[in-house]
Simulated assay, not measured.
Amino acid sequence: MAGIYHIKSISELHRMLGCSPPRHPSISLVKFLDMKLNEKDIDFKGATVDFYVISMKNSSGQIKYGKGYYDFEEGTMLFAAPNQIMYPSHLSSEVLDSEGWSLFVHPDLLYGTDLGKKMGEYSFFSYDTDEALHLSEIEKIKILSCVNNIVEEYNQNIDAHSKHLIVSNLELLLNYCRRFYDRQFLTRGKQNKSVVVRIERLLIDYFNSEKPLNLGLPTVKYCAEEIGLSPNYLSDLLKKETGKNTKEHIDYYLLERGKNLLLSSDQNISQVAYDLGFEDPKSFSKLFKKKVGVTPNDFRSSVN
């Protein structure tokens, strides 16, 4: 079996899926029922694509996407940014034979548009599979309305207004998805509060241990892996619950530990910085001044 296969264009993907050529070179909707993918003919482990993928699954089934297998529920949406690994060889027959669709959007379509500049704001393109978006019936109708408008527009003859209208409907689609994710954070309040408690305990234990000396400063990625979430999802969840993202939580507990060391020991500023995990004491002093309002030395002197 070959390694990871790289798909550069939407046309190439259509050929691989056994679909007719796309009506538009930079955006296309493919229904799962239209795929003629023969699993026996696939000789690669997975594939990366040069475009965005937005998928909805409307009935039960299983797909390998990202880190593992995921059981779809009715009205489940998944998102992938360019160069994320997809696993077509693990699409089950249940998925291939069920209702659902994938919208493929090449970055070429977004060049020179306001949406192109804002794509990084849609952090759900980097969420893990088990952080998928689950829609109500009313929410599904909103999403399908946007998708149908996009398809209707690119199926017409291209004119001077086509790109603007397609991109506008795509942005509306993404904005609805962001709204529905915000709703999902709110409706999972109990689970989210548990994550907040876990991240706080994780950081308190980290800075009270020898880990800063041995491992350096904790990163957003480290915290996310310890909690079992993707970095973007964890930051978005914490922001919704506490008003601070993961990096801000790290900085808070880092500085609380730093204040404690400054007041409870005679260590110089450099040694305090090293004990906290900094490689450069100047970085500690800069962060301390930015967040606390005074330098570490001034803080120590003012309290003493």
Rank of each mutant, 00 (worst) to 15 (best):
G3A: 15
I4M: 15
K8L: 06
K8Y: 06
E12I: 10
L17A: 09
S20C: 10
P21Y: 13
P25S: 08
V30T: 03
M35R: 14
E39N: 13
G46M: 06
M56E: 02
K57C: 11
K57M: 13
S60Y: 13
S60G: 05
G66M: 00
E74R: 12
Q84L: 08
I85P: 05
D97A: 14
S98I: 11
S102N: 11
H106E: 07
Y111W: 05
G112W: 04
D114G: 05
M119R: 02
G120F: 04
G120M: 01
T129D: 14
E131W: 07
E131R: 10
L135R: 13
L135G: 15
I138V: 11
S145T: 09
S145N: 08
S145Y: 08
E153G: 00
Q156K: 15
N157Y: 11
A160K: 15
H161I: 09
S162H: 10
K163Y: 03
L170S: 02
E171S: 15
N175R: 06
D182V: 04
G189D: 01
K193T: 02
V195D: 02
E200W: 06
R201A: 05
L202Q: 07
I204P: 01
D205C: 05
P212D: 09
I227E: 01
S230P: 03
Y233S: 04
L234Y: 12
S235Y: 03
S235N: 08
N245D: 15
K247L: 14
H249T: 02
L254G: 06
L262I: 04
L263Q: 09
S265F: 05
I269Y: 07
S270Y: 05
D275Q: 12
G277N: 04
D280I: 13
P281E: 10
S285R: 03
F288Q: 06
F299D: 02
R300A: 15
